[in-house]
């Protein structure tokens, strides 16, 4: 485990905590895309199929459990919690899951490291994670007025992706046989999707003004 990987995992964890904090303490999920959260729940459910079959480390297992539990509980809050669900911007969050899920599934059937159920599901989860943020970005664009916690949530997710890229570069030069094209390309695509958001996030931070995306 290198410093980039650990920092990446920690920013990922922080993004989830920020989101849960917002939902749990303010009892609001305004500005958060349920579509994106459902896609993340699906991402973790399909990626961590190995959780009970391959033991890697205690850290690995605990983090997997945290991501699974948090993603499903966020979805539960947004759909079922009697106060939180009222703040959900249903009319603005109109992205169709299937437009993302189907192409990713098809792509995973053709491009994968090995044609087995677990491998195809793992590849599918990588492709889906790359694009799962899209409904959230569309929602941000539509609502424009972004509260601090939502802005921080998306920023932390983007930071996590950027740190993972540094982690891959580091591992490529320090570990033999560390070549994972599928992971790298989907990870790169995922990070690039944040570029536009980052640009406005840093500008608002630099000028000390509230984050607003252009129409």
């Amino acid at each position: 485990m290198n410093i980039f990987r650990l920092a990446g995992d920690m920013t990922h964890l922080m993004s989830v905590i920020v989101l849960l904090l917002k939902i749990h303490t303010i009892k609001s999920c305004a500005g958060i895309s349920l579509k994106t959260q459902e896609l993340y729940a699906l991402v973790f459910a399909t990626r961590y199929l190995d959780i009970f079959t391959d033991f890697i480390s205690l850290y690995n297992t605990i983090m997997k459990l945290i991501f699974l539990a948090s993603s499903f509980s966020i979805v539960w809050y947004m759909r079922q919690h009697k106060i939180v669900r009222r703040s959900y911007d249903k009319d603005q969050d109109t992205f169709r899951h299937l437009f993302l899920i189907l192409p990713c599934l098809l792509l995973a059937l053709f491009i994968n490291e090995k044609f087995t159920f677990k491998e195809v599901m793992w590849t599918f989860s990588l492709f889906l994670e790359a694009v799962a943020i899209l409904p959230q970005l569309v929602l941000l664009q539509r609502t424009r007025n972004i509260d601090n916690l939502t802005g921080q949530y998306v920023f932390l997710l983007g930071a996590y992706r950027a740190l993972y890229i540094l982690n891959w570069i580091y591992r490529y030069f320090t570990e033999p046989h560390y070549v994972h094209w599928i992971t790298w390309i989907s990870g790169l695509v995922q990070t690039l999707l944040y570029a536009d958001f980052f640009y406005y996030y840093f500008n608002s931070w630099k000028n000390n003004v509230k984050l607003q995306l252009p129409a």
Partner: peptide, 10 residues
Amino acid sequence: ECFYEPKDEL
């Protein structure tokens, strides 16, 4: 040589 290492990333 094992090219098929376990996936240790999250």
